[in-house]
Amino acid sequence: MEKGGGAAGEGFRPRILVFSTESISDIGIDLAGSSHMHYPPTAISIPLPCSSGIRPDWILYALGHGFDGVFVAADGTDCPFVPDCTGRTAKLVDQAQNLLRENDIKPERLKMAAVCSVCAESFQKHMKSFFDALKGLGPTRKAG
C-alpha cells in the first residue's frame, strides 16, 4: 500500500518523470529552459518519438523505482505522426491509471497534458502544480 500524505514530511520534494517527445514537447521544454523559466529540478525527462508510444507498464515501473509522479508531455494535435495522438495517448494514460489502481498506487500520480513546441509557459505551470499536488500525496515508495 502507498504511504499517506502525512508521511511526506516538510522536506519532501517529489520526483517527477516526464515522458517527453523529441519533435514536439521537448522543443517546448527546451524553450522553457532557454527562457530561464524555472520549474522544480526534480522533474526529469525521458524523450520518446511520440507520446502514443508509451507503454503503461513503464509508468508503473517508474512509480515503483524512485519517482513520485509521471507526467506525460503529450504531442497533442501537433503530433507529426498521428492525427489522433491526443486520443491515443489519453487511452494509454487510462490504461496506466487502471494499472496503478491494481497496484495500490493513486492514479493522481499520473498526469497528461499536451505540451506543444512553444508551450514553455504551460509546461512550467504544469510542473509547478503537479509538484505541489504530489507533495500533498507524499512519496510513492512503498513502506519499508
Partner: peptide
Amino acid sequence: NLREQCSWAHTDVPEKATEK
C-alpha cells in the same frame, strides 16, 4: 540535454541542478 533541460531551467538552484 544538460543545458536547455537542466542548467538553464534551474539557474536558481545550482545544487539541485547538479543533482539532476
